[in-house]
């Protein structure tokens, strides 16, 4: 299993990439009073038919050929459900897939969110052709990052160039820090 929720998100987004998605949306929302953390990944990839969808939470269902079990989805489901949280998946062939997991953060088995910035950073940098939308929220506060907006501002300057990559890293870090902070009155 994974030590961090952010690694699950990376792994689930890898499924979206494998499914040929051109747009992937990632949301991380924390509601502190309710002790809930919800993570969601939505893509416009190839999707699954009803049979695949029903089977994909079973580790013995996989379209992969190098190993007979698929672990990504069952792992995420188990890690959320073992905290008393929930798991939701919906998919339509040819349309895309939507996955949501809710964690109860004060449960003893709840793993930490971990370095979500590193997950989003590496997804963006390694997949310049895919449009990513990311939202990080804590109660009333939030920030977003849309790589389509970045692309419009940057023209053909690659995300992987040093200054842009450093900007993405700082943007994610600083804005998360501000979002995490309690309102200073």
């Amino acid at each position: 299993m994974f030590p961090e929720i952010s690694l699950h998100i990376l792994d689930i987004a890898e499924n979206s990439i494998k499914a040929g998605a051109t747009r992937i949306e990632i949301e991380v929302l924390r509601r502190t009073a309710e002790r809930k953390l919800t993570v969601a990944v939505q893509d416009n990839g190839c999707g699954m038919d009803a049979e695949q969808l029903a089977g994909c939470t079973d580790p013995f269902f996989t379209s992969r050929t190098t190993r007979r079990v698929g672990l990504g989805i069952p792992f995420l489901k188990a890690s959320a459900e073992c905290t008393g949280g929930s798991f939701f998946i919906d998919s339509q062939k040819g349309r895309g897939t939507q996955i949501r997991a809710e964690y109860v953060t004060d449960h003893i088995d709840c793993i930490p969110l971990g370095d979500i910035g590193a997950t989003v950073y590496s997804l963006i940098l390694m997949n310049e052709a895919i449009g990513f939308f990311y939202r990080y929220g804590v109660d009333e506060r939030q920030f977003t990052l849309d790589t389509d907006e970045m692309r419009a501002l940057l023209g053909d300057v690659p995300f992987a160039s040093r200054e842009v990559a450093a900007f993405i890293r700082e943007y994610l870090e600083e804005n998360q820090k501000e979002t995490d902070q309690e309102e200073i009155l």
Binding site: F143, L145, M150, L153, L154, V164, Y171, E174, N175
Partner: peptide, 16 residues
């Protein structure tokens, strides 16, 4: 909050 506007300046520097 940091804003994407900074990318404009990066673009100008890079295009040189």
């Amino acid at each position: 909050m940091k804003s994407l506007e900074e990318l404009k300046a990066i673009r100008e520097r890079m295009q040189g």
